[in-house]
Simulated assay, not measured.
Amino acid sequence: MLDILKKVLLFENLSDDTLKSIQKDCVIVSLKKDNIVFYEGDESRYLYLVLEGKIKLYKTLANDNELVLKYFKEDEMIAEVAVFDGFDYPATAEANSDVKLLKIDCHNLKELFLNNPDILMQINTSLIKKIKNLESVLSRYLILDAKSRVVEYILENSDEFFTLKQHEIASFLNISPETLSRMIKPFKADGIIDMKNKKINTKRLALYKS
Rank of each mutant, 00 (worst) to 15 (best):
L2R: 06
L2G: 00
I4T: 13
K6P: 07
K6M: 06
K7S: 13
V8I: 15
L9M: 10
L9S: 14
F11D: 00
F11S: 09
E12N: 11
L14P: 01
S15D: 11
D17E: 15
T18P: 03
I22N: 06
I22Y: 01
K24M: 09
K24I: 13
D25S: 15
C26W: 09
I28H: 02
I28T: 15
I28L: 09
V29S: 06
K33P: 03
D34Y: 14
N35D: 15
I36E: 04
E40R: 06
G41Y: 09
E43N: 15
E43F: 13
S44A: 15
S44G: 12
R45T: 12
L49F: 01
L51Q: 03
G53M: 08
G53I: 02
K59H: 10
L61D: 06
A62S: 14
N63Y: 08
N63G: 11
D64A: 14
N65G: 12
L67I: 05
V68G: 02
V68W: 05
Y71I: 05
E74T: 10
E76C: 06
I78N: 08
E80Q: 12
V81P: 03
A82V: 07
V83C: 10
G86S: 09
D88P: 06
Y89I: 04
P90K: 09
A91W: 02
A91K: 02
T92M: 00
A93Y: 02
S97Q: 12
K100T: 12
L101D: 03
I104H: 04
C106I: 05
H107E: 14
L112I: 12
N115P: 01
N116E: 13
P117M: 10
P117H: 10
D118N: 13
D118I: 06
D118M: 07
L120G: 10
Q122W: 07
N124K: 14
S126E: 13
L127W: 11
I128Y: 12
K132H: 12
R140G: 11
R140N: 13
Y141H: 15
I143A: 09
L144I: 02
D145Y: 03
A146Y: 09
E152G: 01
E152Q: 13
I154H: 03
L155S: 01
E156I: 04
F161M: 05
F162E: 02
L164W: 07
Q166W: 08
H167R: 15
E168Q: 15
S171F: 00
S171H: 09
S171C: 04
F172A: 01
N174L: 08
S176C: 11
T179Q: 12
T179N: 11
L180K: 10
I184W: 03
I184Q: 08
I184C: 09
K185V: 09
F187V: 03
F187H: 05
I192S: 11
I192W: 08
I193E: 10
I193F: 05
D194Y: 10
M195W: 05
N197W: 01
N197G: 00
K199D: 01
I200D: 00
I200H: 06
I200P: 00
K203H: 11
Y208M: 13
Y208P: 06
